[in-house]
Write a protein that binds this DNA or RNA. Structure first.
Length: 524
RNA sequence: GGCCCCGUCGUCUAGCGGCCUAGGACACUGGCCUUUCACGCCGGCAACACGGGUUCGAUUCCCGUCGGGGUCACCA
């Protein structure tokens, strides 16, 4: 039975790279009819679990990455929180001690530091002298009388090699002598990650440990622990990490300022921020960061687009397939096809997937998600949802592919403001409405609009064309003035679609207002 | 610095000795379409890090160099 896990620490944030790792674990488990579990690595966190965990869980749920065992869903090996498994780790450490695979160590931090520096000076790897190791209770008592406290360290081999097979890296080997006597228990009785992780992986019957390469060099010490405890080893697979845009360095949530110098990143960020500003979403780097999944959710990305993009970061099926439904990716996923080199995160390509997926969203559900943003922005109340939805649906239809993320609806405030509150793009107004005979023409065309019936796009369009025919004008001569008078902007939807959405009354009122308006000044 | 890993277009990648004058996608770019903006359509630019081998033949195998990165905690 294949069993994989993803083990986040409860930081409150879901990192893009972490999601990719979780996704690969999930895919691998689903592919083999196994189980995917979530385990919370909170061995050393003072953070308040109660508020740091839900955002992570919500993030996974939103992405459609479900877990078979773990927080909230429970499971046969509960609890899935390392902070609640101390007793279990204690027995493991006792076993390690009993078997001579670990020892109590009474060294002080400064003493260790001296040895470390000496090793550095001589150019060799630091290997602890074990001078303050207590092998008997008597020795321990003596150190304690000195006021020393003890940690438990692994008694690592000092010769030979630790060799293992990695599903992605192939054969890997490390010299035992380069390994340190890692601490597994602190003086206060808490445990370190490596110990907890190995014990949990064993207890939870994890068959495949699929994680980022940063952990590759941690593997020997974990193998040492597992073997000392008589555990069967899981199969290891170390994924390349997700790199910065245009670089090979690991993507980090703290380096956002640096990434913003990348044009594509900047573009995505600005795009998202303009949406977030309108919805009042706090746009601090902590909460509003393109390295975190929450960022995409806050502006209306589609989870399927993100997952599909992430799937292709370090994995590919062949030389052309890019689109995968969940079922397709489950069927196709194969660790052997994971790349060895880091894949850099490309905001532009993510957006391309988003656009592609957005095209396939049925108009009704697109309108639903757009309406959420409109309500969040306070442009509609949400009280008469059916009527509001109908309006947003018309906008969605007219906007077509201009709506790339659901929050893009907030670019079209002209359909939500009162006629007398419409704002104009001043240079455009100057150029196309204030000059020549634009205003005179608008007045005339206003008369035409009054009698158009019904006030629907194709009818209005026919009326305009008939009018142009009679007066011998070309559409290009007048439509810009009309657009700016009605929407305040030089760009937008098809003119007639926009007019239908506005309705006759608004169109007339807006023409009146534009015509009455002076050169760039408000007429009251 | 020690140890380890990686190295095909700007980016994600295909390629597992001849199918490669290296394929696809994104980005960029020229044009078309068009009431604007998008979309769409047609076209273009663009890569095997370098040097040695092995071989009839290397992007593919080996070695070295260079470059990039990861990791060296009483963090996870």
């Amino acid at each position: 039975m294949v069993r994989t896990r993803f083990a986040p620490s409860p930081t409150g944030y879901l990192h893009i790279g972490g999601v990719r790792t979780a996704l690969f674990n999930w895919l691998f488990a689903r592919r083999h009819g196994g189980r995917f579990l979530l385990r919370i690595d909170d061995t050393d966190q003072q953070r308040n679990l109660d508020e740091a965990l839900p955002p992570i869980l919500d993030g996974f749920r939103w992405l459609g990455i479900d877990w078979d065992e773990g927080p909230e869903v429970g499971g046969p090996h509960a609890p899935y929180f390392q902070s609640r498994r101390g007793a279990r780790y204690e027995t493991a450490v006792a076993e390690l001690l009993a078997r001579g695979a670990a020892y109590r160590d009474y060294a002080r931090a400064e003493e260790l530091q001296v040895e470390r520096e000496a090793a550095e000076r001589s150019g060799g790897a630091f290997v602890y002298s074990r001078r303050w190791m207590a092998e008997t209770d008597e020795q321990a008592a003596r150190f304690e009388a000195d006021g020393r406290s003890c940690v438990v360290r692994l008694r690592m081999p000092r010769s030979g090699q630790c060799a293992f097979q990695d599903l992605i890296r192939g054969d890997v080997a490390f010299d035992w002598a380069k390994e340190q006597d890692h601490v597994v228990r602190r003086p206060d009785g808490t445990f370190l990650y490596h110990l907890a992780s190995v014990v949990d992986d064993h207890d939870f019957a994890i068959s495949h440990v699929i994680r980022a390469v940063e952990h590759l060099s941690n593997t020997p010490r974990q193998i040492f622990i597992a073997q000392a405890l008589g555990y069967e080893l899981p199969v290891y697979a170390h994924l390349p990490y997700v790199a910065e845009p245009g670089s090979q360095s690991k993507l980090s949530k703290r380096k956002i300022d640096k990434y913003l110098k990348n044009a594509d990143f900047q573009k995505l960020y600005d795009h998202a921020r303009s949406i977030a500003e309108k919805t009042g979403h706090a746009a601090t780097p902590e909460s509003f960061n393109p390295v975190l999944i929450e960022f995409y959710r806050a502006v209306g990305f589609l989870p399927d687009a993100i997952v599909n993009y992430l799937l292709l970061l370090g994995w590919s099926l062949d030389d052309k397939t890019e689109d995968f439904t969940r079922d397709e990716m489950i069927r196709a996923f194969d660790l052997a096809r994971v790349t060895k080199s880091p894949a850099s995160f490309d905001p532009a390509k993510l957006m391309a997937f988003q656009e592609r997926y957005m095209r396939r969203v049925p108009i009704d559900s697109k309108a639903e998600s757009m309406l959420d943003f409109v309500i969040r922005a306070g442009w509609l109340s949400g009280v008469d949802r059916d009527a509001e939805l109908a309006k947003v649906r018309r906008i969605a239809r007219a906007a077509g592919e201009r709506i790339r993320v659901a929050g893009d609806v907030l670019q079209y405030d002209e359909f939500f403001v009162a006629d007398d509150r419409l704002e104009y793009d001043e240079p455009a107004f100057e150029k196309r409405v204030s000059t020549g005979e634009s205003k005179a023409w608008l007045k005339v065309f206003r008369g035409v609009l009054e009698s158009v019936d019904p006030f629907e796009a194709p009818v209005v369009e026919r009326a305009l064309h008939a009018h142009l025919e009679e007066t011998g004008r070309k559409i290009g001569q007048v439509i810009h003035a009309l657009r700016i008078a009605l929407t305040g902007k030089p760009v937008g939807f098809g003119m007639f679609d926009a007019m239908e959405i506005l309705g006759r009354a608004s169109c007339l009122a807006r023409i009146d207002r534009a015509v009455a308006r002076g050169h760039g000044e408000e007429v009251s």
